[in-house]
Design a protein around this nucleic acid. Structure first.
Lengths: 210, 210
DNA sequence: GTTGTTCTATACTAATTGATACGGAAATGG
DNA sequence: CCATTTCCGTATCAATTAGTATAGAACAAC
């Protein structure tokens, strides 16, 4: 459907990607509209608000794009064709690699994107907290699935696994931001996964290094 | 030594504590001078700058105070009278409890205090990164010490332990901020420490729950 | 009580924040 | 060509940012 009127002069998609990079680097609040407009191709305030509505609306769109691209590293959590152990291991390894890759900002936008917020931006903080809760739930579902299929016993130790893996996953955001490389985190993941094996009644899946 | 002149009307120490709480909750950048002055007892701008110099100088003082109080939970790392395994376990358990205690903000100021920063405040970010590096070094020293005394073998798996524990430690800041309670993290720590035991050649220290 | 010192209150600075108003430019559809 | 639609550039908004200037108030020492 052809739209009438003067066409937009900048590439909305590229502008969104540029905003994603800036928000990922600095976080929500410290990123000013001036910086955003500059990195989006020196667009005017009018163009900005016409195309994206507001700073918060842009951020929400940025988070959405992040989840659809970089954030895909954690989708194994919801892939029931994968053995639960493998799903978690893949999630950790792919996150480690993604968060340490230098062709884009390091760390995780969902963990670090709005970690410093004044009260008036609590909605933004809540947005990311909800995503983290979703991840937590995905990890727990994998462990539950493994208990259900008899690989893991429903022991107290098993019940600590979701927190253990989630805490490590979120901690990688800090380590990646501080300069840790993929290889280092990946090696730690290998050691971490041994906990699973030590709790397994009967091994159902083998370790895979993608 | 008695100082001449009009004495200060507010309690500098209490004001510093109030600033600590505010910075801990919101982080460095989103915390405005107006908020600070308000929570410090509605002190005037003149009083603020006379007593603390600048926002950044206040933050540095706040970090110092944090390290001298709440941050003391990680001092076992440098206590060579403790068995290395015990030092790390104590550090994790005490951090978990401290970060989840509700009589003050949750999470860790060193991890979360300046995670969102614009370029002009990079010095603040660097300040906290240096502290995290110090922690990382302390954890590694414990593992090295354990290898040196023959408890752990210098295997590849052993060499991943510092990253493993550090990542988990820093990850707790996120989990605590998201509402996890001490008991939950503490249980995960119990499971995490089993990795150490599985790598130990000969157990030299027993698990302690403070 | 006077002097000297250090505090506080008020007003203010220049710069920046996120967001708008408005007029003109540039395209489409007829 | 014209009419309509949409976008862009500029100027601007009120509010807030970190930080100061100035004048006077409140204490100590003498």
């Amino acid at each position: 459907m052809a739209r009438t009127g003067r066409p937009r002069e900048f590439d909305r998609d590229k502008a969104l990607d540029a905003a994603l990079t800036l928000f990922w680097t600095q976080g929500y609040e410290p990123t000013s509209l001036n910086q955003l407009k500059a990195c989006m191709g020196n667009i005017s305030p009018a163009s900005f608000y016409a195309a994206f509505g507001s700073k918060e609306a842009l951020f929400r769109e940025v988070v959405q794009r992040y989840l659809e691209t970089y954030g895909q590293v954690i989708t194994p959590l919801w892939d029931e064709t994968l053995a639960p152990r493998n799903a978690i291991e893949q999630t950790l390894r792919r996150s480690a690699r993604m968060q340490t890759t230098r062709s884009h900002p390091t760390g995780c936008l969902i963990v670090l994107g709005a970690s410093n917020c004044s009260p008036e931006n609590q909605s933004v903080q809540t947005l990311l907290a909800a995503e983290r809760a979703r991840t937590r739930k995905g990890i727990k579902a994998c462990v539950d699935r493994s208990v259900a299929n008899g690989e893991l016993s429903p022991s107290p130790a098993t019940q600590t696994l979701p927190t253990l893996f989630t805490t490590f996953l979120h901690g990688m955001a800090c380590e990646a931001r501080d300069g840790d490389r993929a290889r280092k985190l990946d090696a730690a993941i290998t050691t971490l996964m041994q906990i699973w094996d030590s709790l397994a009644l009967r091994p159902k899946s083998v370790s895979s290094r993608q």
